[in-house]
Nucleic acid binder design. Structure first.
Lengths: 131, 131
DNA sequence: CTTATATATCGAATAAGCTTGATCCGAATA
DNA sequence: TATTCGGATCAAGCTTATTCGATATATAAG
């Protein structure tokens, strides 16, 4: 009896114990495998960076402030009464994530939202609370 | 000389030095003040929690996996080959943020996306990269 | 009632993030 | 060229997150 091991990963072992049925387990495992294979690793990283940039209350406030138009670092730090280094740092994070765009204007750096999608995402996040 | 101080906050001082014109500075400051006043602090906190929950690659992967339907902790940890404690912990974070819902079923805890908006947010985040 | 299994929670170690003063850079101005 | 001012970067201290083994809880099965 040369028990043919068709088990292609530990996943099936686990699911087999779950369902008690090795055949069903294989099907379930294959389905899970298909789903996880569809998840692109680099896409995951990029999207996580976007969400991380939006996960800080101060940065979120900056984005909301920029809904009305372009502002320089000086105005933003003044509006929120925050140190310049802190404001600049958070703006660089937002910029790196692609959420804001920078425009140099003499000695000023003026920032604006890069996409309307940013506002849309904030609106959607607000919907998540009540449910 | 009882110099009437109409300056209602340090904001104007700063903007006055920026523009050189105290009158314009007051207007600008008032405008900024109006904008910042519109930003609700508690709304900010809630939205930040949602984004923070979505800012981890593993949690994002879980959300993507759940697009296809309900899964138990055991299946999720198996799909990604992650420890049970870690998987359970991340699911609790997603649940607390309102992104997933839990359904107890015997000794299983089955999780599903709570809103279609979750998928929409991930799609929007993906758009942010190229621009 | 004991055992096995699915999940949740705890705890300690490690890593990452935030804050802010200090410093550096670059553009405008005298 | 020296100075000033907006902004970026650095560095230290502090807080928070992530990870994962160990333990607790709870449900089901024997």
């Amino acid at each position: 009896m040369t028990e043919v091991v068709e088990i292609w990963d530990p996943c099936v072992e686990r699911l087999a114990r779950l369902t008690g049925d090795r055949c069903k387990a294989k099907t379930a495992a294959r389905k899970l495998q298909n789903l996880t294979d569809k998840i692109d690793e680099s896409e995951l990283t990029v999207e996580a960076e976007v969400f991380k940039a939006m996960s800080d209350p101060f940065r979120l406030a900056i984005l909301k402030l920029l809904r009305e138009g372009e502002l320089c670092v000086c105005e933003i730090m003044t509006a929120f009464d925050k140190p310049q280094s802190s404001t600049s740092h958070h703006l660089s994070i937002l910029k790196r994530a692609g959420l804001v765009k920078e425009r140099k204007d003499g000695k000023w750096s003026r920032y604006r939202l890069s996409e309307g999608a940013v506002i849309e995402m904030m609106n959607l996040a607000g919907l998540m609370t009540g449910d």
